[in-house]
């Protein structure tokens, strides 16, 4: 928790903290990115910069355009207009696989574990620069077996870190939802990305796993990876992020460090609503005790 508080604001952004403010060292810059589905404007981001080496949270109510924005940035969807660049390289119109090769790897809200591949094969697939992945070299084993061993070593280390090593030879289909999230994240790390974009990493994860997932994300930061994640879990946002960007109705309505952004009136209005300070746990308790009473009858 301490690491998120240690970064001071003036080391992250230049000038006043405001939606679309400039960053000291941006890794990703988006400009005028607009995506319309018929009459609906899903994303309309005037300007946003993602700070390098930090954990940035992208939050917003359902339908705010967070995932669409993710899809646009990674090339999985094409915007109607706009430009965005990663480490100074223009990404507009680039195919998703090229974006990934530049070191910008994403995960998905609905986990995409490759079900009928084993866990270790899932991991190996995440690696880059395997000559055996091209058709002709794949036929000659000595040309790729060394790289394969390196890849497997990295994969095994990551699996151990994510506590999936016992599942190494199992089909990914046999993993629980939370384990699949972990696998997807570990797989994304196989290529040592510069920027990892996690789409709701906590969705559907067992609370017992939450803490370890949080630690993994903090580890990424200490290893120099930039993290951008979409999340609804405010606890997580407050806990690990250095910077928070708030989207509503496709626009960036606020940004800043988590402590101040949560108090921003625009955010409270657009997103958190009247219950933002109420622990949802205590709210739902009466309901659950009621149902339990009903059961005992």
């Amino acid at each position: 928790m301490s690491n998120s508080k240690s970064v001071s604001i003036d080391k992250i952004c230049i000038g006043e903290v405001a939606p679309g403010c400039r960053k000291v060292d941006p890794i990703l810059i988006a400009d005028g990115v607009k995506r319309q589905f018929g009459g609906l404007t899903a994303v309309d981001v005037a300007h946003v910069e993602i700070p390098r080496g930090l954990i940035t949270a992208l939050i917003g109510p359902n339908g705010a355009g967070k995932t669409t924005f993710f899809n646009l940035l990674t090339g999985f969807d094409k915007p109607n207009q706009g430009n965005w660049s990663f480490e100074g390289q223009n990404l507009a119109g680039m195919s998703p696989y090229k974006v990934a090769r530049l070191g910008m790897i994403r995960t998905f809200q609905l986990t995409k574990a490759l079900s009928l591949l084993t866990v270790i094969e899932n991991m190996r697939l995440g690696a880059q620069k395997q000559p055996g992945e091209s058709f002709l070299t794949s036929l000659i084993r000595p040309l790729w077996i060394r790289r394969e061993k390196e890849i497997t070593e990295v994969a095994d280390t990551l699996l151990k870190r994510f506590k999936l090593d016992a599942k190494r030879e199992d089909y990914a289909a046999s993993l629980s939802g939370g384990q699949r999230k972990l696998l997807e994240m570990a797989r994304a790390l196989m290529s040592e990305p510069k920027l990892i974009m996690l789409d709701e990493p906590m969705a559907g994860v067992n609370p017992a796993l939450t803490q370890s997932l949080l630690d993994h994300i903090k580890d990424l930061k200490s290893n120099g990876t930039t993290v951008l994640f979409v999340e609804h879990d405010m606890h997580m946002v407050r806990h690990i992020s250095d910077w928070v960007i708030v989207m509503a109705e496709g626009k960036v309505v606020a940004e800043g460090p988590p402590s101040t952004v949560m108090k921003d009136q625009a955010v409270i209005d657009a997103y958190l609503g009247a219950h933002h300070d109420t622990d949802l746990g205590t709210m739902s308790k009466p309901a659950s005790t009621r149902s339990k009473k009903g059961d005992t009858k």
């Binding site: 990674t74 999985f76 195919s95 998703p96 696989y97 090229k98 990934a100 090769r101 790897i105 994403r106 995960t107 998905f108 995409k112 574990a113 490759l114 079900s115 009928l116 591949l117 094969e121 697939l125 995440g126 880059q128 997807e184 797989r187 994304a188 196989m190 290529s191």
Partner: peptide, 14 residues
């Protein structure tokens, strides 16, 4: 085989 299972996932891996 990865493509058979989910091509978007494979795309996201470069």
């Amino acid at each position: 085989k990865g493509i058979r299972e989910d091509e978007d996932a494979v795309r996201s891996l470069g």
